Simulated scan of single mutants.
Amino acid sequence: MNNTKREKWLDIAKGIGIILILIDHSQNFLSDYVSWFHIAIFFVVSGYLFKPIDSIDNLKNWIKRRTIVLLVPYLSFLLAITIYRYVIEILKENYNIAWFIKDFIAKVYGGQYLTGDYAPFWFITCLLGTQIIFGIIHTLIKSKKIQIAIILFFYILAHVESMLVHNKGVMFYAPLATDVILITIAYYAFGFYFKKLLTNIPMYIQIFSLALSIVFIVLQANKILSFQFELKYVEYSNIILDFIVPISFTVLFLGISQAIIKSKFTSSILSTLGMASLTIMYLHFPINLFIDKFITYSSVFFILIGLIVPLALENLVIQRNLVLRFLFLGKVNGKRLTNANDKNQAKPIN
């Protein structure tokens, strides 16, 4: 598979992933199943795109670029939505200073405390932290066995935290969802370490992933399995299935992405959505919540509005202005601040 096709199937995968995120957020009958793996897809893809860094200086530069590429749009969208919300509150003559202070603190703290219009924002800071921690581990520690051992230790810690939060009632979340990194780094590492397998997934692997995914769905539907999995709120129910289930579905959908590339029309639509997944992620909630104040509509329209309106805004407004491209897409002169070491990694929801 040449580089052009490889990049396109990755965009297709992100296009499918962002649709799955909107399906989950639309709260329909598929949400319980989609929530098992829709975020893991992006971490696996991001890990797949990670390129080894050969020195401390290059690592520092890479971290700086990753921070700018992800945090500039994060802060820009956060500020824009916050200004909009505060103006609405002021127009309603809501001058409750205590509420404004509490709300502002929550926005600064981020992570799990970002809800409503900001519900998906936790992902970006978690992704950035995952990339940085993995980059540091891979650059400073040359032994793959030790790298994997550290990531496994983090994975176990994630489940210890989940037990403390949900079984012991210790309600504390780390700032900017950095505690979720303990588990997401495992999916990121899978994408990197299994890059050769994922580049062109064999048919027997795709069939196995499909069969395994169907088994999980059937068992859950018949209440034989009770699998609960919510990355944002560190709700992990089974230390083995919390890896196997997201990965089996992810491999399945990556295989589907590689097959879809043969269909020009479908692949074009999905890759376009994939390239705009950052904007869609940030805006689908505030746009739908705004419209919901005036009319009530089905989950299908929630998904369509959440895809079409942000996509139109990116292509008709943001992409046409250099300043807006930098602020909301992390791009300079139409290109993201990347080099050979991190090409494509800034494409979210990645």
Rank of each mutant, 00 (worst) to 15 (best):
S26F: 07
Y86L: 14
N58M: 13
S277C: 12
I105N: 12
T178W: 14
M1A: 12
Y33R: 13
A40V: 09
A149F: 15
L79I: 15
L313V: 15
I185D: 01
Q228R: 10
Y233H: 11
E314H: 12
P310M: 01
N61L: 06
G334R: 08
I207M: 13
Y233C: 03
T250I: 10
I137K: 10
I295K: 10
D103W: 03
A106I: 02
A186I: 09
P175F: 06
F50T: 14
F194I: 07
G47D: 02
L157Y: 08
S143A: 05
P175W: 03
K335T: 03
L70W: 05
L91G: 02
D57I: 04
F50P: 07
R66P: 02
H25T: 07
I68A: 03
V34C: 09
Q345P: 00
I318A: 07
S298Y: 04
G111W: 12
Q228W: 11
F37Q: 06
Y109G: 00
L20E: 05
R66F: 10
L70C: 09
T178E: 04
D32L: 05
K264A: 08
L75I: 14
Q319Y: 05
G116Q: 02
Y113T: 09
K223Q: 14
K293V: 08
K223A: 13
W122R: 05
R85M: 07
L127D: 07
G330C: 13
F243C: 09
V180G: 08
I88F: 06
K262P: 01
K145V: 07
G116R: 04
A13I: 02
F190Y: 13
I83Q: 03
P120W: 06
L304V: 08
F154E: 00
